[in-house]
Simulated scan of single mutants.
Amino acid sequence: MGKIWNIDTEKCSTIQPSGPGVTPDGSRTLLRGQTLIGQDGRLPPVQGAVLVSKGCCVCQKAQRTRRQCSQCDRPACPSCIQQCSNCSSPCCSVCTIIDGQYEQVLCCGCSS
């Protein structure tokens, strides 16, 4: 077992990485669909990235008053929030369905 962990440091320093995404100088390039994670565990800022609006998740209008949907946890304006007829939780109109037989608003959790 001792032979497995013995590493020759001279050999390790001369090994050059190879394979797809590695340039001849040893620096790595990202392949399509890959992302780079920094030393702090966070993604680096992307140049030209579009900032997410702080408006309603349904109508995209910038409203001062927003409530959090109990199903998807996204903020929605009062006109896009509906209350579930069964559990009374506030849900955005994307996370609710209208029961056609009884005309009730049901959240995704209560509709199944």
Rank of each mutant, 00 (worst) to 15 (best):
G48H: 04
C72Q: 02
D40N: 15
K54A: 11
Q71A: 14
P75V: 00
S53V: 08
R67N: 10
C80L: 02
V46D: 02
V46P: 02
C84A: 02
G41C: 07
R74S: 07
P44Q: 07
T96H: 00
Q63R: 12
C56D: 04
Q71K: 04
S79A: 14
L43V: 11
S27R: 15
V94W: 02
C69M: 01
V94I: 14
V50D: 05
I81D: 00
D99G: 00
I81W: 00
T35N: 13
L51K: 12
D40G: 08
L36W: 15
R64M: 10
R28P: 12
G55R: 07
R64T: 10
R42S: 13
C84F: 00
C69V: 04
C57W: 03
Q34N: 07
L31V: 06
G55T: 05
G33H: 09
S89E: 09
Q63P: 02
R66S: 03
L36E: 05
V58C: 08
S79N: 10
C77W: 02
C69P: 03
G41M: 08
V52I: 09
I97K: 06
C72S: 02
V46A: 10
G26L: 14
V46R: 11
V58Y: 08
G38L: 13
S93D: 13
C69H: 00
Q47H: 07
S85H: 07
Q60C: 12
Q68W: 02
K61V: 15
Q39T: 15
G26M: 12
I97C: 04
C72L: 03
S27Q: 14
G26N: 08
S53Y: 03
C77T: 02
